[in-house]
């Protein structure tokens, strides 16, 4: 395309070439930054990988004093809190997307979507503040009831501190709800009208049309939205750090304090004194990098998969 300027055999002028190289530099700077980020995380964590090997990922002790580091409690906390957030926000988000795309009049739908997207703009630290002063006391008040009635499950045992995995999952679900809702709504709106009209003409109710036509058609796009939200949840820092309790232990109970990868970075990086501690934290950042990268790739692949599905008969 660089020769696109040379219409009908005209050679590229010097000024044009200079300009092209100038803007190319800006573009390559973006590539350079991404490469530098990956390199930095790799070289900054080499001590941890050479000391502990891949066992770093499944060792569960984290002790800066005795210099024993393992990422498992953080990996577990990140994955479980994100999964919990997804379990709450997924049905809620897809449900409201169905309402906004299929039932609500277009203007109301647009207005609601506008408001829901404002939720995505609320800074994470502000949601954390809400979490500390509303969700934590709330969870503390509700959990004795849950322990009493659902205590036969391992998830609902232990002491209700208020801070812990459940609170973190709740606050994360608030943060990812707007992504799931607004992307799922876009996907559902892209379902071709004739398909829906065909189902309605055959006598299906509107819900049956949603269930049998719209949802199957939009399935990969909605899954993509969910994975995109999961990618966000994995790396969310401030709000989670403020309510999860920051304790590197693995416990099945949702009421127990836990820790996430992002939270341990936020709490310990500024105070990491020994090289090994620093490299272990960098290794955690690198793991988070890879995890998000994978999740986003999966999400993009699924959302991009939607137009191909459209061509299917």
């Amino acid at each position: 395309m660089s020769k696109g300027g040379a219409v009908a055999g005209l050679t590229e002028r010097a000024g044009d070439r200079l300009f092209r190289y100038g803007v190319l530099c800006a573009g390559l700077a973006v590539v350079g930054l991404a490469a530098a980020l990956a390199l930095e995380l790799a070289s900054g964590s080499r001590l941890a990988w050479s000391e502990f090997g891949p066992a770093f990922l499944w060792s569960s002790s984290w002790n800066p004093v005795s210099e024993r580091f393992g990422a498992l409690p953080f990996l577990y906390g990140t994955l479980v809190s994100s999964a919990l957030a997804l379990a709450i926000a997924g049905p809620l988000g897809v449900g409201s997307a169905i309402f906004l795309a299929e039932l609500a009049p277009r203007r109301i739908s647009d207005a609601c979507c506008f408001f829901i997207e404002i939720l995505a703009a609320v800074p994470s630290v502000v949601l954390g503040l809400m979490g500390i002063f509303i969700l934590v006391p709330g969870v503390r008040a509700v959990s004795p009831f849950l322990i009493e009635h659902l205590g036969f499950l391992p998830f609902f045992r232990g002491t209700p501190y208020g801070v812990g995995m459940l609170t973190a999952g709740l606050i994360l679900s608030i943060m990812i709800l707007p992504y799931i809702t607004s992307i799922s709504r876009e996907v559902l709106l892209s379902v071709p009208r004739p398909l829906k009209e065909a189902a309605l003409a055959l006598g299906a109710t509107r819900w049956e049309t949603v269930r049998l036509v719209s949802l199957p058609y939009a399935r990969s796009g909605i899954l993509g939205a969910v994975f995109l939200a999961l990618g966000r949840a994995l790396g969310e820092t401030m709000a989670v750090t403020m309510v999860i309790g920051n304790s590197p232990r693995i416990s099945a109970s949702l009421f127990d304090p836990a820790y996430t990868m992002a939270a341990v970075l936020a709490n310990e990086l500024a105070e990491a004194t020994s090289d090994l501690h620093l490299h272990a934290l960098m290794a955690i950042a690198g793991t988070l990098f890879m995890l998000t990268l994978g999740m986003n790739a999966l999400a993009r692949w699924m959302i991009l998969g939607t137009p191909t599905a459209r061509r299917r008969p």
């Binding site: 991404a34 930095e40 995380l41 969310e236 936020a266 960098m282 990098f289 986003n296």
Partner: peptide
């Protein structure tokens, strides 16, 4: 590269 940076958690960028 832009998509990669866009999807990165802000804390990872901070570590960078």
């Amino acid at each position: 590269a832009a998509d990669l940076l866009n999807g990165m958690p802000s804390i990872v960028i901070g570590v960078f």
